[in-house]
């Protein structure tokens, strides 16, 4: 019998990626460390934990979103999540001033941000998603429109705001792993873990959803209910990671498509862990190179968005060529 797959055997792939990811974490923790180990490990450890968590959440949410929309060039940010995050940040600073915002209990702000983003998307889904494919497309379209609305509102507020305050807002709008609060990390990790359990148990259903609406219904899957549930799952993941470090738009696209290339299968039990490991690997090694080798700090999101944008273009061009 001819071989079924042309890519690496799954176990080898996962082990290899896991090893690489672990190595990048160890390198990140140790390279260039000077002074007290306990301080360095705590400081860098928090950062590593944040990157692992965010990488994992973004990878999973993007794969899920692409599965339910049957489209591999979309990311959940199309639903206007990062725009909403921008708006929340801008309005907070505009209304209360940057000093007050900085003095906020970070847990409270985190809670408000996550709640606002999840509530917004949930309302949108309830309102618009009727179960048909058109419903899903309409949902995305309205998401885009809301995104534009939020963006222009924040743009407007940023113009009328005090220039110094504007700089504070600007700074918050670039994803950064440097200002993550350890307590928030723990809470986020719990939320993401709970979501992962649900997703893992639904992996078989996800495989079917990836066949498209009609095939899924034919196979007896309650398409509307499952898609709705997955949309809510996606919004929780995106909200948590955005509230933690800020918006990361193209990163999910990059890692999801790398994962599809690597695994060559439709099974979510394989795609999801591979995407998560790729995400962690890319984040860690990117940060390592930038911070330790080149001495930049906090610029990772810009580089990732740049790389993600290029991947996005390559996918588009390759599709057009087919």
């Amino acid at each position: 019998m001819p071989p079924d797959r042309r890519s690496l055997p799954p176990a080898v792939l996962i082990a290899g990626l896991g090893g690489l990811a672990a190595a990048s974490i160890v390198l990140f923790l140790t390279v260039g460390a000077k002074g007290s180990w306990s301080f360095i490990l705590t400081f860098r450890g928090t950062k590593v934990a944040a990157m692992v968590l965010v990488g994992y959440a973004i990878a999973m949410s993007t794969v899920l979103f692409q599965t339910i929309t049957n489209n591999r060039i979309l990311t959940p940010s199309i639903m206007g999540f990062d725009a909403l995050y921008r708006l929340i940040q801008t309005v907070l600073v505009f209304q209360l001033g940057s000093a007050a915002v900085a003095g906020f209990d970070p847990r409270l702000r985190f809670g408000i941000e996550v709640a606002a983003m999840v509530a917004f998307s949930w309302l949108l889904y309830r309102w618009l998603f009727s179960g048909s494919l058109r419903g899903l497309h309409l949902l995305m379209l309205v998401g885009i429109v809301f995104g534009v609305l939020f963006r222009s509102l924040s743009g407007f507020l940023q113009r009328v705001i005090d220039p110094n305050e504007f700089l504070v807002v600007q700074d918050r709008l670039f994803a950064s792993f440097n200002r993550v609060d350890a307590q928030l990390l723990a809470v986020s990790a719990l939320v993401v873990l709970a979501v992962s359990v649900v997703v893992w148990r639904k992996a078989g259903v996800l495989d079917v959803l990836a066949l498209g609406r009609d095939a899924a219904i034919n196979l007896g899957v309650d398409h509307r209910r499952e898609v709705m549930q997955m949309l809510v799952t996606v919004s929780i993941l995106v909200a948590v990671s955005t509230a933690l470090v800020g918006p990361v738009t193209f990163f999910g696209l990059l890692v999801a498509n790398l994962a599809y290339l690597l695994v060559d299968t439709h099974r979510h039990r394989l795609i999801l862990p591979v995407a998560a490991l790729v995400a962690i690997l890319v984040l860690m090694s990117g940060q390592l190179v930038l911070e330790r080798l080149l001495g930049f700090n906090g610029a990772l999101s810009i580089v990732i968005e740049f790389l993600g944008g290029i991947v996005f273009l390559i996918i588009l061009v390759r599709r057009a060529a087919r």
Binding site: N71, D214, G220, H266
Partner: peptide, 22 residues
């Protein structure tokens, strides 16, 4: 319920596209 029906009736549509790599 859809899963009950799926054991009694199946359908193939006129055009079938798939994004999943199968």
């Amino acid at each position: 319920p859809g899963d009950v029906l799926a054991r009694h009736l199946s359908i193939l549509r006129q055009d079938n596209q798939m994004t999943a790599r199968l």
